[in-house]
Design a protein around this nucleic acid. Structure first.
Length: 439
RNA sequence: GUGGAUAUAGCUUAGUCGGUUAAAGCGCCAGUUUGUGGCACUGGAGAUCGUCGGUUCGAAUCCGAUUAUCCACCCCA
């Protein structure tokens, strides 16, 4: 087949066999967020370019080389969102939510766009679940947001992730640290790798993260941000940790975590998976106390995280996480002859009106082929309707798992009979689940 | 953006030193005596061998370019 064109590089299609898994992830995420008091918000895919320049930061890689930016017909500079927080913060301010009850707790599911070189776990269009908590300075808020991510990962059956946390301080203590760090690396500048040489000027903290053995060796003895935290930042950080301890959430302190977006302050954290190769960060976030002011609002301490849905799915599959059963047909009506085709269509329509998933033949298959089809789509029951059944008004209801057949009347009692059967089955399932839970 | 690997039916793969109609399993469709699925058997559809160009009497196979995927760097979710 010579197709005219294919999916654009770095994008991917979610086929029916997979989409119910995505739905499961999304619904679980929103439900847990709801339990934590986070309500869903939706913002446009594109924004004015300056929003991201200001919030994400002019010097970051994301803004400098990864944004999908274009001029629209009104000559506005438009950018497809590269991340979720900026748009949420913009909408939060634009609609004056900051004048209501604080904190404002927001959750979202969005697609994001970054022009990067694709590889496993890294797409140009990817989906993110995230939360934002606007208007809370307290460390328990940090712990709350972290515990939300923690619980969600647990609930989804994700194993083998470790929570890494760090504090990158506030602008005041960080600038002191930057100076110190810079002079440390400058002293040994000649030994650093090429990329790190460039980082010296722009963002010396990134050198700490370098994988080159030479740089890593030098970084080993470099000054650590934690030692430079001002009293308030130190207190905050310690307090976050104590709340995590209190909630029995395990974490590792990792002084090398440096977020690539400029708006982060104080607490930063990542959930890192051991199943993902180079793209191991499933969830990343932190506090951004300066962002709201940066966007023109009154200063408002806030925080949040983003979680990559495609990566999450990859980890779940790698770890053999359980997914709910894909939805299946409950009743299949097999027909023989014109009169039966019409009767089946009517019955199926009524079943569907009653919320029962039902199907009948629409392509003119033989009876045998219809039975095969019913088997393939996982129908729980089938009813065969032909001339005989139309005449007697009685058909056989076949349980496709056991193969047992029982008579069923082709009148209005059909619906109640079926409904009761399905209900019994559901009750049995619930009982099974309860039994499992009890063990 | 840098480096490396790969590219054959819907999926997973085979294809020997270039040589006729490119092979298999799974999946799909149909049939195995006429009204019943899962198993088995039989048959069928489905591939311009990623794309374009070159070498050659002849290319899935050799060469070049291009595109896409994967891996690492980078970056991040």
């Amino acid at each position: 087949m010579a197709l005219i064109t294919k999916a654009v590089r770095g994008t991917r299609d979610v086929l029916p066999d997979e989409s119910f898994k995505m739905q499961h992830i999304e619904q679980t995420a929103l439900a847990i967020a709801r339990d934590f008091g986070f309500r869903e918000m939706r913002t446009p895919v594109f924004e004015h370019t300056e929003l991201f320049q200001r919030s994400v930061g002019e010097t970051t890689d994301v803004v400098q080389k990864e944004m999908y930016t274009f001029q629209d017909k009104g000559e506005r500079s438009i950018t497809l969102r590269p991340e979720g927080t900026a748009g949420m913060a913009r909408a939060f301010l634009e609609h004056g939510l900051n004048n209501g009850i604080l904190p404002v707790k927001i959750s979202y599911l969005t697609s994001c766009y970054r022009y990067e070189k694709p590889q496993a776990g890294r797409l140009r269009e990817f989906n993110q679940f995230g939360v934002e908590c606007f208007g809370s300075a307290k460390p328990q808020s940090d712990a709350e947001v972290i515990s939300l991510a923690h619980l969600l990962l647990n609930e989804l059956g994700v194993t083998g992730v470790s929570l890494q946390i760090n504090s990158i301080g506030c602008p005041t203590c960080r600038s002191k640290y930057h100076k110190e760090l810079k002079s440390y690396f400058e002293a040994r500048g000649g030994e650093l790798c090429e990329t790190c040489h460039g980082r010296l000027e722009r963002n010396p903290m990134r050198i700490l993260d370098c994988k080159s053995p030479i740089c890593a060796g030098i970084a080993q003895d470099a000054p650590v941000m934690l030692d430079f935290l001002c009293d308030e930042c130190r207190l905050h950080y310690d307090s976050v940790k104590s709340f995590l301890d209190e909630a029995e959430i395990e974490y590792e302190q990792n002084p090398r975590i440096v977020r690539g977006l400029d708006y982060y302050t104080r607490t930063v954290f990542e959930f890192v998976s051991d199943a993902l190769g180079a793209q191991a960060v499933v969830c990343g976030g932190g506090r951004y106390d300066g962002l709201i002011e940066e966007l023109g609002g009154r200063p408002l301490p806030s925080l949040g995280f983003g979680m990559g849905l495609e990566r999450l799915l990859m980890v779940m599959e790698a770890k053999g996480a359980k997914f709910p059963e894909p939805p299946q047909c409950e009743v299949y009506l097999a027909s023989m002859g014109q009169a039966a085709v019409k009767r089946c269509f009517a019955i199926v329509t009524n079943l569907r009106r009653g919320g029962v998933s039902a199907e009948c033949d629409t392509v003119g298959r033989s009876l045998k082929a219809q039975m095969k089809y019913a088997d393939k789509i996982g129908a729980r029951y089938t009813i065969v309707v032909g001339d005989n059944e139309l005449e007697t008004g009685i058909a056989a209801l076949k349980d496709m798992q056991s193969g047992e057949e029982s008579p069923i009347h082709l009148d209005d009692s059909l619906y109640t009979t079926l409904y009761n059967k399905l209900l019994d089955r559901q009750l049995a399932n619930v009982a099974d689940l309860l039994g499992e839970a009890a063990e």
